[in-house]
């Protein structure tokens, strides 16, 4: 008997990702799609993609999609959810989009307990625009706008979104995960599933922060990037469930 151990999820279209070789955006897209398939919700799920590397996510997710202005995805998702409360609505946003230009939108969507799910991809750098400093760039990390490394005096310190949002009563599920090896990928998928379940149960706002790589702008090979993430990002951005409602524990 042949058993399919792994195949492309139906919630992804057949379009080829435009991401650079080894960029873990593709893994995260796939995890979201697998969760949607496994929950059987593709027919009534609406996604909102951001500005940044994942701007074309509307071509990859096989469902109704919105492309939002930079940082505004949580507001757009709010508009969708308030017209169609029975739909599952998610945003997929990078660190520049969510943690810089879109901080107001994400904070207030969370504070309102908006029943949406946010997948927040943190790779500590701006990808699409050419490797500039992100709000999540680590202290000392070299980027095209911090050529000597991010200095506290000039450029401040990183924003820790999961920690910050978990202080809000409306945010009921907040977790930080990583995709730098298969074990963590499995954990990441569980967290994404839980976030969607929290939305389905109508409990409030849910967010999963996913630590991700950017080989191109980190100036490393894909393999080295996985190690850089583990060595540098994990200590600064501790993984774990920051908040979890009793109903889904």
């Amino acid at each position: 008997m042949a058993k399919v151990m792994f195949k492309r999820p139906a919630a992804l279209t057949d379009k080829q990702f435009h991401y650079c070789p080894g960029c873990t955006h593709g893994i995260i897209h796939r995890l979201v799609a697998e969760v949607i398939d496994e929950m059987g919700i593709r027919d009534h799920t609406v996604g909102v993609c951001p500005v940044g590397c994942s701007v074309f996510a509307y071509d990859y997710f096989n469902m109704d999609m919105f492309q939002a202005a930079h940082g505004r995805a949580p507001a757009v998702a709010t508009g969708i959810k308030r017209t169609l409360p029975d739909r599952m609505v998610f945003t997929y946003q990078g660190d520049g989009d969510l943690a810089s230009i879109g901080t107001a939108e994400i904070v207030h969507a969370a504070a309102r307990g908006e029943k949406i799910t946010t997948v927040f991809v943190n790779n500590a750098v701006y990808g699409m625009t050419g490797g500039q400093m992100a709000p999540t760039t680590l202290p000392g990390q070299k980027t095209t706008t911090t050529p000597k490394g991010r200095e506290k005096e000039a450029a401040g310190l990183p924003v820790k979104i999961s920690e910050m949002l978990s202080t809000l009563d409306g945010a009921v599920y907040v977790a930080r995960v990583s995709v730098h090896d298969p074990k963590h990928i499995t954990q990441a998928k569980k967290a994404i599933r839980k976030a969607f379940e929290v939305q389905q149960a109508g409990l409030g706002f849910s967010l999963v922060e996913v630590l991700s790589t950017c080989p191109t702008n980190w100036g490393l090979s894909p393999k080295e990037s996985l190690k850089w993430l583990a060595d540098n990002m994990l200590p600064y951005y501790p993984l774990g469930v920051y908040k979890e409602p009793a109903e889904v524990k």
């Binding site: 008997m1 042949a2 058993k3 399919v4 151990m5 792994f6 195949k7 492309r8 992804l12 080829q16 990702f17 991401y19 080894g22 960029c23 873990t24 955006h25 593709g26 893994i27 796939r30 090896d181 298969p182 990928i185 499995t186």
Partner: peptide, 13 residues
């Protein structure tokens, strides 16, 4: 699971 481009399919006998 690790492939970022969903290139791989696995079938087990």
């Amino acid at each position: 699971r690790m492939c970022p481009d969903v290139v791989i399919e696995v079938v087990k006998e």
